[in-house]
Design a protein around this nucleic acid. Sequence first.
DNA 1: TCAGTTATTGACTTTTCGTTCAGCAATGAA
DNA 2: TTCATTGCTGAACGAAAAGTCAATAACTGA
Lengths: 208, 208
Amino acid sequence: MNTPLPRWQRRKDARPAEIIQAALTLFSDKGFAATRLDDVAKLAGVTKGTVYLYFENKEELFKAVVRETVVPALEFAETLVEEHQGAWSDLLWQLLSSWAERMEHATSSGISRLMIAEATNFPELARFYVDEVVVRSRRLFADVISRGIQSGEFREVDPMMAARAVTAPLVMIKVWKQSFSLCDTEPVDLKAFARFHFDLLVQGLRHR
Amino acid sequence: MNTPLPRWQRRKDARPAEIIQAALTLFSDKGFAATRLDDVAKLAGVTKGTVYLYFENKEELFKAVVRETVVPALEFAETLVEEHQGAWSDLLWQLLSSWAERMEHATSSGISRLMIAEATNFPELARFYVDEVVVRSRRLFADVISRGIQSGEFREVDPMMAARAVTAPLVMIKVWKQSFSLCDTEPVDLKAFARFHFDLLVQGLRHR
DNA sequence: TCAGTTATTGACTTTTCGTTCAGCAATGAA
DNA sequence: TTCATTGCTGAACGAAAAGTCAATAACTGA
């Protein structure tokens, strides 16, 4: 006689990550308030009770999602800058294109929109996100611009302003796509836009 | 004997606008779901029951807020383009700076963030917003770029792409400011950023 | 195989908040 | 001053979803 397969399994180690993944999917699609924990549980293949076994409440789950999801990607970019040799505009393109690439595929890129939507409802989480993600990536790009100025490749601009001007369009397009994909009659290709934006930018940054 | 002032007054005509204004404030601060109708009512100086006198339900109130608030501003910009004479880059600056100006003061500029947050929960409203606001303003800027290309002032770029590249940064900065104003340690001045963005842009658009 | 341990369930309670409506009070006409 | 009209109130309702917990079924070691 073959043993009947059990109705559920004990998987203490795997649960938190699976629940976080499910929550990420639903939060970044519907937002925090509109997401039901019943649905998160179902998508994670468990029941609501299990969610509460691993997370204190809905808000703590939300925090966990943000914490576990966003930070790793930045570290890769930072080493890229550290080790770079050659033209700074090349590095800029490398950063922008790899970013656009990741945005198109990684589920974690939905976090931007989620944070924008929920920041005022979760001040401490917003602070965490700003410090660990926004400011840090802004500084990353400001750094590249600064070095480009020092080497004489770019004209003298405010690096922090420039960093905002570099990052904002990509984030915005991604956020738009996510929000309005169903109704925008002229969808953009993220990578194509990144290329277009880069060309405009580099010509704008070069000496006249 | 002076008549005791009444506990409340009948102001049938003024109520809808006041309720919409209150709803706009709270929606654009907290988002749709996180806003309680009790709070909207209180801010509007009425009780919840009154809200239901003038609006069928919460969702209809939301729609009214978007409808009444965003469309008017665009019309002004469209006449500006129609009547313009002279350099197209001048018009571009005129549009960008007046837009930044409005963003800094009008409560209605909170709608962008609100729509971004709630679009997936209100597909029909999202379509309305995309058609009446997003696409229309994108077309406005694409138009200016096109004419600039025709006149030889700008190099040949895809006008629609360029329009996105022109509008995205401003919207993004505004949205960021709104979401993270409490925690961003390096706040931007919107007008200064608009100026910076414009300079970068125009040099990027000109012939090499 | 069995008993002890515990991860998971699912029905239950509680809370929150949109929605309703009977009654009250402001108004204006007679 | 009175009365009919009606804008407005606020208490009460009920659905939906957060949060709880005793029972149960899967695992583990002996």
